[in-house]
Simulated assay, not measured.
Amino acid sequence: MPAKRREPTSPLNRYRVPILDRTLDLLERLSQHPEGLTLTAMTEGLAMPKNSVFRILTTLTLRGYAERDESTKVYRLSRKLLSVSHGAIGGQRLLQAASAVLTALRDATGETALLGTLSGSQGVVLDQVASSHPVKVVVEVGHAFPLHTAAPAKAMLAFLSEDMRKALIQGIHFTKHTKTTLTSAKAFAAELAEVRDKGYALDRCEESETYACAAAPVFDARDEVIAAIWISGPSDRLPLSKLPAAAKVVADHAAKLSASMGRPATHRK
C-alpha cells in the first residue's frame, strides 16, 4: 500500500478542501505517466476509493482535461492543461516575444527554431519557425518530448531548483534509443551540471540518429526558468563538431528572449 501523505503543519490546513486535494493528487499522478493509467492503477497508486477516482476522472474528462481510450480503458491528460500551464509562464506574452526571436534564430542558423516548456514529466512544443531547407525537422505544436534525450528538456531541468530537478530525474525511465542515449540518472545529472556551467544543452542524436539539437533556457523576471528555445536539424548538417558553436548562437537568442520576459540584467551573461 502506498504511504499515507504527510500533511505539512500549518494553521491553514483547516481550510483545505479534501476533494480538491484528491483531484490534484490525481492530476500529478497522471502527469507522471504520459502513457496513461487505468482506473485500477490510479486507485491503487493513490490509495483512494475507486468510486472517488472514477468520479474525478469523469469530471476531468467531461471538462476536457483528461481523455479516455475506450479500447484500452486508459486515461491520459489532454492538451487542454497546456493552456493552464501556458498561462502560468506568461502565456501569450511569451509566444509573442518568442516569435521574432525564433525567426531570427532560424535565419542565423538555417535550421528549424522551436520554443517549448515543461509539462509534468515531459516537455511540450509551444511554437516553431521551420527551416527554409528542403530537408528539415518539423514537429507539431503540442508534441511531447522526453526529458533524458531532448536538448530543451536538459536546458530547463539544469536550472530548476535542486529539489524539483531531483524529483523529475527520479521519475525518468532511461530508455535507450541510440548509442548516444544517456541511460542512467548519474550520467544525466552529470550532464545537467555541465549544462549549468555552459549555459546550453545538446541532443547528440540521442533520440534518433537522423537529427541533432542545441538548446538554451529562457528565464522570467524572477530569474526562474520558464521555457527553452532550440534548433533542430538533420545530423549531417548539425554534426557533433558543429553543435557547440550552434548552441552558443541559440544561447545568445535565448538571452534576448529572457530580457524580453523581464529577466534582470544582473543575471544575464
Score class of each variant (00 low, 15 high):
84 V>C: 05
148 H>L: 01
13 N>E: 13
219 F>R: 08
237 R>Y: 07
263 R>A: 01
132 S>T: 14
97 A>I: 00
34 P>M: 00
133 H>V: 00
119 S>L: 08
4 K>M: 11
202 L>V: 05
216 A>K: 05
91 G>Y: 06
80 K>M: 05
31 S>N: 10
238 L>T: 08
133 H>K: 11
106 R>W: 01
19 I>Q: 13
21 D>E: 14
174 F>E: 05
197 D>E: 15
248 K>N: 02
95 L>G: 13
103 T>N: 14
182 L>G: 03
203 D>E: 04
75 Y>E: 09
222 R>I: 02
63 R>L: 15
233 G>H: 02
121 S>T: 10
147 L>V: 01
65 Y>K: 03
14 R>D: 14
110 G>V: 01
239 P>Y: 07
266 T>E: 15
213 C>L: 00
238 L>Q: 11
256 K>A: 09
170 Q>D: 15
246 A>Y: 10
22 R>S: 10
3 A>M: 09
256 K>L: 09
8 P>S: 07
33 H>E: 08
181 T>N: 07
251 A>L: 00
258 S>L: 01
57 L>R: 08
143 H>T: 15
221 A>F: 10
171 G>K: 12
89 I>S: 12
20 L>M: 14
241 S>V: 13
268 R>A: 13
4 K>H: 13
23 T>M: 11
176 K>I: 05
80 K>I: 00
79 R>M: 06
90 G>E: 13
259 A>G: 10
114 L>F: 08
178 T>G: 02
194 E>A: 13
198 K>C: 05
214 A>I: 01
46 L>G: 10
139 V>P: 02
21 D>G: 06
264 P>L: 07
181 T>P: 03
2 P>Q: 12
190 A>V: 04
128 Q>G: 09
36 G>I: 05
122 Q>E: 15
119 S>P: 00
193 A>V: 01
5 R>Q: 14
144 A>P: 06
200 Y>T: 02
242 K>P: 03
124 V>T: 10
200 Y>D: 06
33 H>F: 15
25 D>T: 12
64 G>M: 05
232 S>H: 04
205 C>W: 07
112 T>P: 04
62 L>W: 07
38 T>W: 00
18 P>L: 11
206 E>W: 02
25 D>G: 02
114 L>Q: 13
51 N>I: 13
152 P>L: 04
250 V>A: 03
106 R>S: 09
137 V>E: 10
196 R>S: 09
15 Y>G: 10
15 Y>S: 11
220 D>T: 05
128 Q>W: 08
69 D>I: 03
46 L>V: 06
39 L>T: 09
72 T>V: 03
172 I>F: 07
168 L>H: 08
51 N>G: 11
17 V>K: 14
11 P>A: 12
163 D>C: 00
37 L>H: 11
235 S>D: 11
97 A>C: 06
55 R>D: 12
260 S>I: 01
194 E>Y: 03
222 R>F: 09
147 L>S: 05
76 R>K: 14
201 A>H: 06
73 K>D: 14
177 H>G: 01
157 L>D: 08
7 E>W: 09
222 R>T: 08
139 V>W: 09
154 K>Y: 09
213 C>E: 11
187 A>K: 14
262 G>S: 07
150 A>T: 08
244 P>Q: 02
127 D>C: 01
186 K>E: 15
123 G>N: 06
60 L>A: 03
47 A>H: 10
123 G>W: 03
150 A>N: 04
220 D>Y: 06
53 V>K: 04
123 G>R: 05
